[in-house]
């Protein structure tokens, strides 16, 4: 029983990280129908920002995790720049295929640019301890502080984000732009500004995910976002891409499947199961678990 609960908790922790990254994919897809392949690399940007700013935070007498603030700002800036410099001009002139290729190019650019910067380079660096070590035990189940922090922070971030999109004017504007750009313009919404804002939020979330990820796996390297990004993308598709609760659900499912497979089958089978589940779900529900077409009557 304690193994089961332990596995469940590890799955939730992993799942919350996937969910945070998946949210970035889904928000951007929702608003401009683009799979932002560079999104995984934003995690790397966040990771390195923290590597460089943790000493700064510690010097100021703040805990290491506060460096996430710098990472959020940096990732948001990189995300907004990507939209303004690469995606927006392509959207005006190109097709969705050119946009997709551009996204892959931005991903490659970020990875290779990072490697070329002397302070980063091709070799991994290891982050210092982010959350306090240790934890506590209840009924034979060990809870590390890192795990508790990850789950709690992700949950809070997701609730706040969901409320933001549902209850605030800006959030509603984002939903409108994602649904119908022309009608949004007629309502007086500045569509381009809303898209940039979406990039800022989605990219900022990847910085939070980077924090959680580094707390568990402190190694930071230039391609660290690839597999994590891919699985988060799978999570977004699984839940129904473009749908915010779908990304959260998809992320948790992927995390749990991975954790349970590792624990009860074999760690080498974990990714196999993740992608197998993706295929099965998509055969049964092509639009993802929460994806559905609201039939528009004409």
């Amino acid at each position: 029983m304690s193994t089961f609960i332990q596995t469940l908790i590890v799955g939730l922790r992993l799942g919350s990280i996937y969910a945070l990254v998946a949210l970035g994919y889904t928000m951007v897809y929702g608003i401009i129908r683009l799979i932002n392949f560079a999104h995984g690399d934003f995690i790397m940007v966040g990771g390195y920002t923290m590597i460089f700013t943790i000493p700064l935070a510690l010097a100021m007498g703040l805990p290491a995790w506060t460096s996430v603030v710098f990472a959020i700002l940096c990732c948001a800036l990189v995300g907004m720049t990507t939209e303004l410099v690469a995606y927006r001009p392509i959207r005006k002139k190109g097709t969705s295929m050119t946009a997709l290729i551009t996204a892959i190019a931005v991903s490659m650019l970020l990875e290779n640019l990072a490697q070329a910067i002397p302070a980063i380079g091709p070799n991994p660096v290891v982050a210092s301890q982010i959350f306090s070590t240790g934890g506590f035990s209840i009924a034979g189940v060990t809870m590390e502080w890192t795990t508790v922090s990850t789950i709690v922070i992700s949950a809070v971030v997701m609730v706040v984000l969901y409320q933001f999109t549902q209850k605030t004017k800006l959030g509603r504007a984002m939903r409108c732009v994602s649904e119908d750009k022309e009608a949004s313009i007629l309502m007086g919404i500045n569509v381009n500004r809303t898209i940039v804002l979406t990039f800022a939020i989605g990219s900022g979330l990847s910085a939070v995910a980077a924090l959680m990820y580094m707390a568990q796996y402190p190694k930071v390297y230039t391609t660290m976002g690839m597999m994590l990004g891919l699985k988060a993308f799978v999570a977004a598709v699984l839940g129904g891409i473009g749908i915010i609760p779908g990304a959260m659900l998809g992320g948790l499912i992927i995390g749990l499947v991975e954790s349970f497979t590792t624990s009860y089958v074999s760690s080498s089978m974990a990714d196999t199961f993740v992608f197998l589940i993706l295929i099965i779900v998509l055969i049964i529900k092509p639009a993802g678990i929460l994806g559905k077409n609201v039939g528009e009557k004409v």
């Binding site: 509603r172 939903r175 409108c176 649904e179 119908d180 022309e182 009608a183 949004s184 313009i185 007629l186 309502m187 007086g188 919404i189 500045n190 569509v191 609201v294 528009e296 004409v298």
Partner: peptide
């Protein structure tokens, strides 16, 4: 800018309604 025009008191009911289906 197109999105500023509504501030002048001109509203547009588009062809095909264009309501926000998920709202």
């Amino acid at each position: 800018q197109a999105n500023k025009i509504i501030n002048l008191g001109l509203a547009h009911v588009p062809e095909g309604r264009h309501v926000f289906a998920r709202l």
